[in-house]
């Protein structure tokens, strides 16, 4: 693994458990960042492969609360980022429930980036998929074209301002960046492995029904 986040994130962990003590994911899930660091430090290939195929590496919220507190200057959150990247490159992510969710993230956030230039866009936050957003958001969603122009001269139009339409030239540059720097290949790889796994699990393909299942399934075994 030549990820710079591993060089930056891990040296001589002394197993003190401070990271676990402050970790919001450790509080909520059956998850212990100290253990992850220990396994990676062990260089035990089999144990690392098991980790890459497990739910465990997908619990972290990447809040980086562990970073300023570690007495050794380690960042378990960076180690997790490096492991998640590797798990996807090797196609291991589809072997766990939480890992398979990467397809949902690619299809929502990833595709929004390329199509709109935004990670999140008002029309992406559909009230039926986001009941927690409440009635005010539903009202905003239904009346966006009457509301956003109060705060933005160019809502969904080209020009400066909040939620402006990002020009085709800028979107083209963004797409080229994804092509040149490996982002597009990374997306394709997520699709490829998800397709394989979907068929293996009895779906016709990594279609809408597989996506819905991936997005909503929770075995309840994570605590």
């Amino acid at each position: 693994m030549e990820d710079v986040r591993l060089q930056e994130g891990l040296s001589a962990c002394m197993n003190c458990g401070v990271c676990t003590g402050v970790c919001p994911a450790a509080e909520f899930y059956n998850y212990d960042p100290r253990q992850i660091v220990t396994i990676v430090q062990s260089r035990d290939d089999e144990a690392i492969e098991r980790l890459l195929k497990s739910d465990t590496i997908w619990y972290c919220g990447e809040c980086m609360s562990c970073r300023p507190r570690c007495p050794r200057g380690n960042t378990p959150g960076y180690v997790i980022q490096a492991l998640r990247t590797l798990s996807q490159k090797l196609g291991f992510f589809v072997e766990s429930e939480k890992g398979r969710q990467q397809l949902a993230l690619k299809r929502t956030i990833g595709e929004s980036i390329l199509a709109t230039g935004y990670c999140v866009h008002p029309k992406l936050v559909k009230p039926e998929m986001h009941p927690e957003q409440g009635p005010v958001w539903s009202w905003i969603y239904d009346h966006d074209t009457d509301l956003f122009p109060k705060f933005s001269p160019n809502y969904m139009k080209e020009g400066a301002g909040a939620v402006r339409r990002i020009s085709d030239d800028s979107l083209q540059e963004l797409k080229r960046i994804f092509e040149v720097s490996g982002g597009m290949e990374f997306f394709d790889n997520i699709e490829r492995h998800s397709e394989r796994k979907a068929r293996e699990m009895g779906y016709e393909s990594a279609d809408q029904s597989y996506l819905n299942d991936v997005y909503t399934t929770n075995s309840g075994d994570h605590h």
Binding site: R84, T85, S181, G182, G183
Partner: peptide, 10 residues
């Protein structure tokens, strides 16, 4: 990036 679908280089 923090959902781990966008690589660091990108």
């Amino acid at each position: 990036y923090h959902s781990d679908i966008v690589p660091l280089e990108t």
